[in-house]
Structures are given as structure tokens and as C-alpha cells.
């Protein structure tokens, strides 16, 4: 059951990434890539991915406009969510087994990761 959820997550992520990737390559055809650090750039300045690609809500909004980059980023988000789903399923399994100690431990791990999502940025 848990192994299956991982496989489904991984396959979904690859399929979404491939669909978005084809669109992305069409939409960015002939453009040069810019990932090198600018020579006069200090460590404090880092361009990074476009701001709309950094959060779930803005990514979803751009998917509806068939933006390739946003669809690839959704594939990334699904990939990141897969190990987290595994923790959620383990938590459920511990609760069913009435293993209170490990239900608590799984809940702590999940809280640490999720609190990041809200307090960082």
C-alpha cells in the first residue's frame, strides 16, 4: 500500500513533467539559458526561478493558462509531496495499529516539514 503510493506519485510526477516539458521547450524555443552567476553579483543577489513558480497557488493559476514552466513545476511539487504522502500513510497505519508513540513521532515529523512551508520564504 505504501510502496504503491510511492510508485503512483513518481509516475504521476514524470508524466506531468513530460507534458509540461514539451510545452516549455516550445514556449522557450531559441531562447538562451541564463543560469550562470553574474560576474559582479554578490551572494546576496540571486535571480532564481520566476516569482510565480515559487508557490503552489500561483503555479496552479498559471497551469490554467497552459504555461509549460508552471506545469513542470507542478511535477516537481508532486515529486516533493510523494515522500510526505508516505509519512501521512505511515501515520494512518500507526493509528490503526493503536501505536500511540509512533503516531506521535510521525505527527512530529510531518509538523516539522509542514511548518517550513508556512514560515519560510
Amino acid at each position: 500500500m505504501i510502496g504503491k503510493s510511492l510508485r503512483v506519485g513518481v509516475i504521476a510526477s514524470v508524466l506531468i513533467t513530460l507534458c509540461g516539458g514539451i510545452l516549455y521547450l516550445f514556449q522557450h524555443q531559441g531562447l538562451a539559458t541564463q543560469y550562470a552567476p553574474a560576474p559582479d553579483e554578490t551572494d546576496a543577489h540571486f535571480a532564481g526561478a520566476q516569482p510565480y513558480l515559487r508557490g503552489i497557488s500561483t503555479v496552479v493559476a498559471h497551469i490554467l493558462q497552459l504555461d509549460g514552466a508552471a506545469i513542470v513545476q507542478l511535477g516537481v511539487i508532486v515529486l516533493i509531496a510523494t515522500p510526505l504522502l508516505r509519512i501521512v500513510l505511515s501515520l494512518a497505519a500507526f493509528i490503526i495499529e493503536k501505536d500511540k508513540l509512533y503516531a506521535l513521532i510521525a505527527a512530529i515529523v510531518l509538523t516539522i516539514i509542514l511548518s517550513n512551508m508556512f514560515f519560510s520564504g
Binding site: 513533467t17 516539458g21 532564481g48 515559487r54 513542470v72 513545476q73 516537481v76
Partner: peptide, 12 residues
Amino acid sequence: LQRGYIDPGLAL
């Protein structure tokens, strides 16, 4: 992801 270190062109 929130800091923009993960770029779709590289993840693809």
C-alpha cells in the same frame, strides 16, 4: 522551492 532555487528548465 520558495526561494527560487528549483527552476523548471533544470527540473524538466
